[in-house]
Design a protein around this nucleic acid. Structure first.
Lengths: 196, 196
DNA sequence: CGTCTATTTGAATGTACTCAAAAGCGGTGG
DNA sequence: CCACCGCTTTTGAGTACATTCAAATAGACG
């Protein structure tokens, strides 16, 4: 089992001793997901937080009318779960599916709590993880409120340039809160402006 | 100086010893804000996180066209700042103004870091604060993407029933991402449905 | 009391959506 | 490995939701 990626992800924020490394690696479990497998389904208990070792996942909400709203993408080296339901023991509000064959590390609520209780470094790491998640979502809210769809698309592409190879336009549209048809016309208009 | 409210806010998540209480109370400073005073202005350094001891604040973004987008409200017993800029030392992206005469406690970045370094309990408290902030924003994003404006308004009123006495409709509209005129017609339609 | 801002109302406009159909592309199985 | 099938993307027409602009009314603050 290769823990380099997940340990480096943590070590980017806190320095880990070999004992701490040992406790962390023994707290997580490895799992493979095939393309289109679900890591989590709406209504199910959300028992784990996932670290993406390889591949790509997507979390989305499905409303009564069947409309998908993409909450987040998680590429390699990202953490993902339905955080509210994971932390509060509620049934999941979202689906999380593998966009391609993926490998993830799972951390259960009980093991997370044990790490938080026993390793001050991990408490700090998780605090920083939550800080970053919060400020990222805050920024997304500011953009959703203040920018038109075309500009939000530009920013998305600029911020996550590598993502376009792994997700469909339909999925990007549902992340931006617009229809795939409308994203298509946005892209057409953009192309018109370009001299090639 | 009455620290009961802020200490209780923290003690809701972690138990504090008298030494810890002493370190926390000596890390914060008290400040009064008159109605319409700014706690923070766009472009300025964001040096503090604020705890609202009394009154109410509002954070909003102002775009090039002069349109306001309300990021969050903070009533009594809430924490507020431009978290991204506070944590990363960037100039503020938002204005934070007092909606009425208010009293706040300020915690500087340096003092926050000291508390995080010296008090594991405070690190835990702040982690939980960030967790809650993150999951709240996540929920807001889901609603913004999947619900029509009228439903978002209902949810807002249901979630923060006391807030309607302290903020204007114009401010609520800018929180929901719609114009005040449109919120007005939403309310009119709602009233029509009601037999009184 | 007077002024300034918020709220309501209505008309005209525009942005983004729905529906439908054609074209493109990718995955899968023969 | 190619051909088919299904899903994604594009395109266009018609529509609906929400905006802009303007003006009248109401309400709040100094």
């Amino acid at each position: 089992m290769n823990f380099d990626l997940i340990l480096n992800n943590i070590a980017r924020h806190v320095l880990l001793s070999s004992s701490e490394i040992e406790q962390i690696t023994s707290a997580v479990t490895y799992r493979k997901l095939a393309r289109k497998d679900f890591f989590l389904e709406e209504g199910q208990p959300c028992k784990y937080i996932a670290f993406v070792h390889s591949g790509a996942l997507r979390a989305y909400h499905l409303d009564a009318g069947g409309k998908e709203s993409t909450i987040m993408f998680a590429l390699t080296d990202w953490w993902i779960t339905d955080m509210y339901c994971f932390l509060n023991g509620k049934p999941a509000m979202v689906f999380i599916e593998a966009l391609e064959n993926s490998e993830i590390f799972l951390l259960s609520r009980e093991n997370l709590d044990r790490l938080l209780d026993n390793l001050p470094k991990f408490e700090r790491f998780f605090r920083i993880l939550m800080q970053n998640a919060y400020t990222r979502e805050q920024l997304r809210i500011i953009e959703n409120l203040s920018l038109p769809a075309a500009k939000r698309y530009d920013n998305f592409i600029a911020r996550y340039p590598q993502i376009i190879n792994q997700v469909t336009q339909k999925q990007i549209a549902s992340y931006l809160g617009i229809t795939p048809e409308f994203l298509s016309t946005i892209r057409k208009n953009k192309a018109k402006g370009t001299i090639s």
